[in-house]
Simulated assay, not measured.
Amino acid sequence: MATLDGDRLVDWTAFAQARTQLGANFVRILGYFQEDGVKSVALIEEAMRSANAAAMVLPAHTLKGESRQFGAEPLAECAAAIEDIARHCVENRYEPSEALKHVVELRPLFQATLTLLEREANPLVERRPMFGRRPAA
């Protein structure tokens, strides 16, 4: 599992690009990511409990794409692993037990990532210096 540290959980350059591209819609779309992510994680966990690989595919796919949009690559990779395993299990009629490790990692990874994204998106938070510049003393 990725360590829960901000510089590993989020590619801040990709995050800044998303913020620029989305402009005034950024905060609203980040809110959708939060809502969709909570639902996707819950659906994936429920599908794991019921050994239903088919029910894992769409929420994992959704979480993967939305995570990449905000530079949350470790979260996207975890969701991608779940999606890939689930698709393989559906095709071969297996139970998705192989996905358990990733499903267990998913919720804490999502929560840590979301906390970082929301903190960085908050207009009241002091911004980190970009590109190695140090703030004036």
Rank of each mutant, 00 (worst) to 15 (best):
Y94V: 00
T62S: 14
A79K: 00
A81V: 05
R87D: 07
C89L: 01
A55E: 02
E91Y: 00
L58I: 12
R68C: 07
A79S: 00
P74D: 04
A79Y: 04
I82G: 05
P59M: 08
R68V: 09
R68W: 03
D84L: 13
L63N: 00
R93D: 02
A80C: 04
P59L: 07
V90Y: 04
A60V: 08
T62M: 06
L63Y: 11
D84T: 15
A86K: 05
L63D: 05
F70G: 03
A60W: 06
C78I: 15
F70P: 06
A55P: 06
L75G: 01
K64T: 07
Y94E: 14
E66G: 13
I85G: 06
I85L: 02
A60D: 06
L58N: 12
E83S: 10
L75N: 01
E91D: 15
K64R: 13
A79D: 00
Y94I: 03
G71V: 03
S67L: 05
L75S: 05
D84V: 11
E66D: 14
S67R: 02
P59F: 08
E83T: 11
A76P: 01
L58D: 15
K64C: 03
P74E: 03
S67D: 07
E66V: 15
A72P: 07
D84P: 01
L58M: 13
T62R: 11
L58A: 13
A55S: 13
C89E: 02
P74T: 01
G71P: 08
I82V: 14
E91Q: 14
N92Q: 10
R87N: 12
K64L: 03
E66F: 07
C78G: 04
L75W: 07
R68G: 15
I85C: 06
A72D: 07
C78N: 14
V90P: 06
C89F: 04
T62D: 02
H88R: 08
A86P: 09
S67N: 12
D84F: 00
G65T: 08
G65D: 06
A81W: 04
A86N: 13
T62Q: 05
C89W: 04
E77Y: 00
G65E: 09
A72W: 09
S67W: 02
F70N: 06
Q69M: 15
T62L: 09
V57G: 02
S67P: 06
N92M: 00
E95R: 04
H88T: 10
G65L: 10
A60Q: 11
R93L: 08
A86T: 13
I82A: 01
F70E: 09
L58R: 14
D84Y: 02
V57I: 15
E83M: 09
A54K: 13
L58T: 14
Q69F: 03
L58C: 03
L58Y: 09
L75A: 04
R87V: 15
P74C: 11
M56A: 04
H61G: 02
E66L: 12
I82Y: 03
A60P: 05
E73R: 06
P59D: 02
A79F: 08
G65M: 10
G65H: 08
A72N: 01
E66M: 12
L63V: 13
E83A: 10
M56W: 03
E77I: 01
P59I: 12
M56E: 07
A54H: 05
A55C: 07
A81R: 15
Q69G: 14
E66P: 00
K64V: 03
S67E: 08
A55V: 01
I85F: 05
A76W: 04
K64Y: 08
T62I: 12
Q69P: 01
